[in-house]
Design a protein around this nucleic acid. Structure first.
Lengths: 222, 222
DNA sequence: CCGCATCCGGGGCGATACTG
DNA sequence: CAGTATCGCCCCGGATGCGG
């Protein structure tokens, strides 16, 4: 990209990661770790393939991304963030936090979706209300992938992929999941938006924000 | 800007502030508060005037910037961040922190500079080593503007402009100031880079990082 | 199939000139 | 002072090709 030509740390940062798509590439690498070019591309719906190659080269030159050629069990190239690239996490997370209200407002028509993107809202909204309790694991399944939400010692973490032993399994359209996570709708209302769940309801409500977890008792004195 | 079309909070944020120059405009508004179009432009060397107008319109539509028409003592328009725009501060500061190593490395030839941009490194590197002491105020003068660094109750703040009653006054080229603030060089070495100071040396060394403040005693037992 | 390179059309961007 | 107007250019988007 063309440099801003300003002796300012914000401008210098944007000289390296201010290009279109660049911070979204960093997002994918933060969420997915070491990943192949093709999977990276699948996580960035809409990007042109030549742009992805260009950006990866530029990020490599900037010391943000490293290319990894594992020996022969694996025949492919992996891309990963360098430690310096990992240091972009606070910046990407801050942008993600700022964008959450725009996401709660609902998807635009035609918006693409990938399950790992839920990590930002999850880590923003969910909190363990019984931090001393045993670790809890929630699987989230969508049409476009799955993530696992784990809480141990009161800390919430998310990972892409499925879990063998989950205490509960959530599935449904992204907007219903977002409503539930953000506390904008409660569980019954989320179900009317298409959400389904099975497993330990207590485990689920332990992590959900107060409003979303309301009515978690099958019979409750109103 | 063209939307990324992704139902992700980072992508949604970048849909609004990911355009070229946009986050630098937010930077200026964060550093300077309510400000006129012309001063905004002066704080963004290199921007094309039509782009600034376009971006301000887009930011206004996005609810990030508000246009203010003060009554007739003042005959001009002021631009300021809305509360929603102020919430971008963590994101801009995180990017600024990430960019600081690039700034410590020194300016590129031809880089423009404005004094308020020092706010990010100052708030990153400086800390009050005598938080219980009386408030201290350092004026920083450069060829391209001045800022004031204030510490009270252990908290460091910076403001654009000059101070009437400063405990010390620093002046010199940006690179020398950055070296001193970052602790890369000590006071004598900063002077050899063109830095000048007058006033209370103790007050200065109270805020500087350890290495920069070395040799702050006129006669010291080595 | 994976990881690109090439080509081409359109629009965002940069620089300058001009105006109410 | 606060923009608008204009015009190249290059970045970006989308499609296709291609070597390993």
């Amino acid at each position: 990209m063309r440099s801003y030509g300003q002796y300012c740390s914000v401008a210098k940062a944007l000289d390296l990661v201010g290009d279109r798509w660049t911070l979204l590439i960093v997002r994918e690498l933060l969420l997915r770790g070491a990943i192949r070019y093709t999977d990276l591309r699948a996580g960035l719906p809409g990007i042109a393939t030549n742009l992805l190659a260009d950006r990866l080269r530029a990020l490599e030159a900037a010391g943000v991304v490293a290319r990894e050629e594992p020996g022969p069990p694996i025949a492919t190239t992996l891309f990963r963030l360098t430690p310096r690239g990992e240091e972009l996490r606070p910046a990407v997370e801050a942008l993600g936090r700022w964008g959450i209200p725009l996401m709660v407002a609902g998807p635009a028509t035609g918006d693409a979706f990938r399950a790992p993107w839920l990590a930002f809202p999850v880590e923003q909204f969910l909190a363990d209300r019984s931090p001393e309790g045993p670790p809890v694991r929630i699987a989230v399944h969508t049409d476009e992938g799955a993530i696992v939400i784990e809480s141990r010692d009161g800390r919430i973490e998310t990972f892409p992929g499925t879990a063998d032993e989950a205490d509960a399994v959530l599935s449904g359209p992204p907007y219903a999941l977002m409503g539930l996570f953000s506390g904008r709708v409660d569980l019954p209302r989320a179900e009317s938006l298409g959400l389904r769940y099975e497993g330990d309801r207590e485990a689920l409500c332990r992590l959900l924000p107060e409003h979303a977890a309301e009515g978690n008792q099958t019979s409750d004195i109103s």
